[in-house]
Design a protein around this nucleic acid. Structure first.
Length: 299
DNA sequence: CCAGTTGTTGTTCT
DNA sequence: AAGAACAACAACTG
């Protein structure tokens, strides 16, 4: 699922491919995939816009367009961008406006809900099996004032982010530490996979109340989060094997970090540190994976 | 048919 | 009022 490392990888790869190109045309088959405008209005706005820069804030992709206009995208759980040159899409069994795509022949995948035609002859496709992801178009507003951005906490890999800032934010809540670091108002970019992995690295039990962690543990957690995210970026993110289409690089390749996880998706497998069986419990209706021996519920 | 999966938001409860 | 809990969104796998 796209968390910070997957979004960062998408940004890095897209920059190599489509910086400087312009949008020629747009197609959609799911209205809600365009968040703040009607898809028809969005299409009018986006046509002719040039991609000047691509960056990331939290799990959002930020496309900087001409005259400070912005295209934002959130991939949520199953969304991802693909760049290519296709002829058929999306799924044969779905009805769609044949006038828009009549000349196409090779299929992308079954879950394309947005398609952008680019002026370099290629296409940018947004694949999203569960349809929670979205794009939004903004003009006459600075990035920090956009509602989805304004309420966000600090970036874990920002050079100005320090253990003291993390400590201050964690002291404000008694919720389990796992839920606290997954809360984008406290710190952004961390989802289920990297929360479990960071807590394993820091040897912290996921149920420990956030405001009960010692300063030493918080410093260790700070380090563990950065280490985990940086390593995951190096491996181009996580693509958990499954029949469904999930996270891919814009080239269609899988990430490789799923082979590196220590606890996530590894229930009953031996801990790499002590060989105890990895446990899975529920925290706030979500799975949490941890080593019961290495991650004690102590403050 | 049911449980499990996921990030974020909006609603409801305490 | 604030903070925490939880439903909702969607679609597929096992």
């Amino acid at each position: 699922m796209p968390e910070l490392p997957e979004v960062q990888t998408t940004v890095d790869e897209l920059k190599k491919e489509i910086l400087g190109v312009s949008f020629l045309d747009f197609w959609y088959d799911w209205k809600k995939s365009v968040k703040n405008l009607s898809p028809e209005e969005f299409k009018k706005k986006i046509k002719g816009e040039k991609i000047l820069d691509i960056s990331r804030r939290a799990k959002l992709l930020v496309f900087k367009l001409t005259n400070n206009k912005l295209l934002l995208a959130h991939q949520k759980m199953t969304g991802h961008f693909l760049v290519g040159n296709w002829k058929y899409y999306p799924r044969a069994k779905r009805k769609w406006q044949s006038t828009d795509i009549g000349h196409l022949q090779d299929k992308v995948n079954d879950y394309i809900h947005l398609m952008f035609w680019l002026d370099d002859g290629r296409q940018l496709a947004f694949s999203d099996l569960r349809k929670f992801g979205w794009v939004a178009f903004y003009e006459n507003i600075t990035l920090e004032d956009i509602p989805e951005i304004a309420s966000l906490g600090p970036e874990p890999l920002d050079e100005n982010f320090t253990p003291n800032i993390l400590e201050k934010r964690l002291k404000k809540t008694s919720r389990p530490i796992k839920q606290a670091i997954m809360d984008p108002k406290i710190i952004v970019g961390i989802g289920n996979i990297y929360a479990d992995e960071s807590l394993f690295l820091a040897q912290i039990h996921p149920l420990t109340p956030a405001n009960k962690l010692s300063d030493q543990k918080i410093r260790k957690l700070f380090w563990a989060i950065q280490k985990t995210l940086k390593t995951a970026i190096k491996y181009k993110g996580t693509t958990i094997l499954s029949g469904a289409e999930e996270y891919r690089l814009p080239s269609g390749e899988r990430g490789n970090y799923q082979d590196k996880t220590q606890v996530y998706h590894r229930e009953n497998q031996p801990c790499s540190r002590c060989s105890s069986k990895i446990k899975r419990i529920k925290i706030g209706q979500r799975s949490a994976h941890f080593c019961p021996k290495c991650q004690k519920n102590s403050s």
